[in-house]
Design a protein around this nucleic acid. Structure first.
Lengths: 137, 137
DNA sequence: ATTCTACTTGCAAATAAATTGCAAGTAGAA
DNA sequence: TTCTACTTGCAATTTATTTGCAAGTAGAAT
């Protein structure tokens, strides 16, 4: 359990109401959220502030951006469950987490074979398919 | 080498100038392109047509959408090199391909462990890091 | 070759996503 | 308590994507 104020201070962020609120919203979420959803979750934080805060949190490594081929980005706390990814139903958009992405060897090999890359910092991996319900339709 | 007209007909698409043009642009590209880039590559195809065509090609399995955490989607031909992915420089945006993503076991295991998914159709995997040049700055 | 129709396209306009500038507000160091 | 650099909200842009519709046309049928 991350103590919000500490997490913010540790990274040089000021502890402000909008940031705490956004952090809390993300912490309660059980799936990656859109900017709009995060905004709804707070009480009155401006959309722009949500954008800026999520971007800052992302830079700081507090938050991860998730792209699920929708028209907009999603965000979730990195928190403890560091290296999990998502299975997404292409029909109903349901999202489930999965773990067991052993990407280190893949990343290392890719790095070695690459022509001009020095280091890998993060990765994204998402699976797209059909949930049991949508598969029968 | 895909014969454009055949590829289109085989999937029930009419062979039209915009489609052939868009296909050609993608075929010449050495990296995933944005809608705007594709449009620039053609001579006068409307932006909306590019959107619609890319979406149709994607549904048909001709084209793959790539999300690199920019504000917009990128597209590239699926073509022969089926299962390649990208290493992206977070600083200068340089893109390089890599292969060797053995995702089948990961996908199978994720599917098995999942609560309600029936099948996996596609996946995305991107590596984010720094190229040699940007890493020194 | 001509006809006909369903599929396509371009244009205009709407909707949605993300960014920028700036003045006012405030957390936290001094 | 003071002061300043960091933050925020609001307005306005810019960029991305979608939708409606009339006009155009590929390709099947004749």
């Amino acid at each position: 359990m991350i103590v919000i104020a500490d997490a913010l201070k540790k990274r040089g962020f000021r502890v402000t109401a909008p940031r705490v609120s956004i952090f809390n919203v993300l912490q309660k979420a059980s799936y990656p959220m859109s900017v709009q959803e995060v905004k709804m979750g707070t009480k009155g934080v401006d959309t722009v502030t949500v954008y800026r805060t999520l971007e800052a949190f992302k830079q700081a490594g507090l938050v991860v951006q998730v792209d699920l081929q929708r028209g907009h980005a999603l965000y979730e706390l990195k928190e403890g469950k560091s290296d999990h990814h998502h299975i997404v139903c292409m029909s109903c958009k349901k999202i489930e987490d999965f773990t067991g992405c052993d990407y280190q060897p893949i990343a290392q090999q890719a790095l070695k074979k690459s022509k001009g890359f020095a280091k890998i910092i993060s990765h994204s991996l998402e699976l797209f398919g059909l949930c049991a319900l949508c598969a029968t339709k």
